[in-house]
Each structure stands twice: as structure tokens, then as C-alpha cells.
């Protein structure tokens, strides 16, 4: 099993922490994992992205250039990462903020209105968890349960009730299915 993931969005959308969370969850499930952030100049100008690999063999390179799954949380990320997805791969789109439609026909599309669901749950910050839940359910690379268990390891300062809310967001995200 090999799952290369790219997550991209605005700074503040929790792109980096979501990536660390996936790697932490994969590690706790006994898999080989890596996380690689965009850094330096790439981080200026308000966008952030990261690569995550969850695999059974040692990760050869942590930079995912042809992702099995791309998770795009804002409009500019769609243009940048849609072309990179492997044929037959998965593109998860945060339809709350992405108005454009994907053009590729050789990949699977999973539309998730992350911000709306986060708002319904009463905390805008957990929109990234909705996307992570959708990812876990659609790929099985990590389980929703593992992500939930990884939450307190990554967000060490979060109160239990906020963790609980994050888990709810994960579960709501997991309800979405590929069209």
C-alpha cells in the first residue's frame, strides 16, 4: 500500500497541522509515514501546502509530486494541484471556497462543503477535519478512528471538548462519498 497525499489551502486553514495529523495517525497504525511542508518563500503570500505519505514500505521521498490524493481547500489550490493528481487518483474539493469545477475526467472527485459543515458544528476552525474525515473514508489509508486518536498527540493544548468537536467533524466528513 502506498498513498501519497497533497493538502493545500490558505494559511490558517490548518493545512500543515492536518498533514502532521495524518502522518501521526498512520504512524500510530504501524505504517511508514512521512510529512513534508512547503517552507520559506513558498509559504509567503498566504498559501500553504504539504505532502504526506502513508505506506507499508519505507518512504523513498517525502515530496509527493504525483499525489494519489490531492485535498484542495481553496480556489488557487485547485488550479495548482488538479493537474498533478495521478490518473485514477482522488481529488477532494472544499466546495465552500472553490467555485471552479475540475476539468479532468481520469480522476475521482469528492466534493465536500467543509466550511458549511464546520459552521453547522459551531466552529469554523475545524473545517480541515471535515476534509480529513472525507479523505479517511474515501481512501482507507488511515482510519477515522486513528485520526481521532492522533488528535491529542498533535494538538497538545486542545481541551477535551474541542477534541470531541474535531472528532464530530471527522465523522461528518466521512459521510461524503465519491460521485
Amino acid at each position: 500500500m502506498y498513498q501519497g497525499i497533497r493538502i493545500s489551502g490558505f494559511g490558517g486553514q490548518g493545512v500543515i497541522s492536518a498533514g502532521v495529523l495524518l502522518a501521526q495517525a498512520g504512524m500510530m497504525e504501524g505504517k511508514e509515514v512521512s510529512f513534508f511542508p512547503a517552507y520559506g518563500a513558498e509559504m509567503r503570500g498566504g498559501t500553504a501546502n504539504c505532502s504526506v505519505v502513508v505506506a507499508t514500505d519505507q518512504v523513498s521521498t517525502p515530496i509527493v509530486t504525483a499525489p494519489d490524493t490531492a485535498i484542495v481547500l481553496n480556489e488557487p489550490s485547485l488550479a495548482k494541484f488538479e493537474p498533478m493528481v495521478k490518473p485514477g487518483g482522488l481529488l477532494i474539493i472544499n466546495t465552500s471556497l472553490v467555485n471552479s469545477k475540475p476539468t479532468r475526467k481520469d480522476i475521482k472527485i469528492l466534493n465536500v462543503p467543509c466550511n458549511e459543515i464546520a459552521a453547522e458544528l459551531g466552529n469554523a476552525k475545524i473545517m480541515n477535519m471535515v476534509a480529513m474525515g472525507a479523505f479517511a473514508a474515501a481512501t482507507g489509508a488511515v482510519t477515522v478512528d486513528a485520526i481521532a486518536k492522533a488528535l491529542p498527540k498533535v494538538y497538545k493544548k486542545l481541551k477535551p471538548e474541542v477534541i470531541e468537536l474535531n472528532v464530530k467533524a471527522l465523522k461528518r466528513g466521512a459521510e461524503f462519498k465519491v460521485n
Binding site: 502532521v20 502522518a23 509515514v33 512521512s34 510529512f35 513534508f36 511542508p37 517525502p62
Partner: peptide, 9 residues
Amino acid sequence: GILGQMMEP
């Protein structure tokens, strides 16, 4: 830079 920036166990 790859090794420096990447996270792994």
C-alpha cells in the same frame, strides 16, 4: 533540506 524539513518517526 528534504531531510531537515520532513517529519517521520
